[in-house]
Design a protein around this nucleic acid. Structure first.
Length: 256
DNA sequence: ATGCCCCCGTCCCGGGGA
């Protein structure tokens, strides 16, 4: 089973790219972030017409996450537990084919310090708590999405230029590695311990043409999922299309 | 040092993105 994550930067603006990518048999499950759509305006039919299932947790204009799947989607949970006052649509979780899928759109957090950075760190603390709860279920768990964290300097085209940014901040990195230390595996680094593997290139300043990228989209696997990991990759092709998202898909293959 | 670009919305600017 192939599980992918893609920050699409608007489901409606990117609909042809998304359906084209699914039709090319690139994945069985796709986690999408930044759908920028309310549930009622989401293009559900574009997925169901292909025979796919779809679960959506959206809001107006900003944020929003969705899961598309070839298999039925069960036990859907909208929102990350831990703060009933949080109205930003950044998390959806569901069970698909026996795997618990957590789809994450983690706050950017800039500028740091400030209230937006505080929100990022509090969100990451809630994510840690949920991640630990999920480990206790002993299900295979995949926590995938746009983490807005550059784990190491090698994951940034110019680390010196990003010092002090919320994506490279020591507190952001510490919160990310705290989840790994609890028992999750960074799928990309599990199979490619070193080397440059970007998932995002800014629209500005010719970042794509210069390969000035970042690795901020991650697939974190519980031990039960990690034991089944056979392959992982980043598909750069969608970033090269006309009117692309600024992110491109990352995927992992789990043996059946 | 700053902006470049892109998306959204009771919309032609401003907020947000990273």
């Amino acid at each position: 089973m192939r599980i992918a994550s893609w920050n699409v930067n608007s489901a409606k603006a990117r609909l042809d790219h998304i359906t084209g990518w699914l039709k090319a048999d690139n994945a069985d499950i796709l986690m999408m972030q930044e759908i920028k759509s309310q549930d009622e305006n989401f293009p559900h039919d574009a997925f169901t017409d292909l025979g796919w299932h779809i679960a959506v947790h959206g809001q107006k204009s900003y944020n929003g996450v969705a899961i598309a799947s070839r298999f039925p989607i069960d036990d859907v949970m909208n929102g990350l537990p831990g703060d009933d006052a949080d109205e930003q649509a950044r998390y959806i979780e569901a069970t698909i084919n026996g795997v618990r899928i957590g789809n994450i759109y983690l706050p950017n957090g800039n500028p740091a310090p400030g209230p937006k950075f505080d929100y990022k760190l509090s969100w990451m603390a809630r994510l840690y708590d949920r991640a630990v709860e999920l480990l206790a279920t002993e299900m295979p768990v995949v926590l995938g999405g746009d983490y807005n964290v550059l784990p190491q300097d090698v994951d940034c085209y110019d680390p010196a230029a990003w010092v002090g940014d919320a994506l490279t901040h020591d507190d952001s990195r510490a919160a990310f590695f705290k989840i790994l230390h609890a028992g999750y595996m960074d799928a990309l680094r599990a199979l490619h311990p070193s080397g440059v593997h970007y998932t995002y290139w800014d629209y500005q300043a010719g970042a794509w043409q210069r390969d000035n990228g970042l690795r901020i989209d991650h697939l974190l696997l519980s031990p039960e999922a990690g034991d089944r990991l056979t392959d992982v990759g980043i598909d750069r092709a969608p970033r090269g299309l006309e009117k692309p998202s600024d992110h491109t898909p990352i995927w992992c293959q789990l043996r059946d």
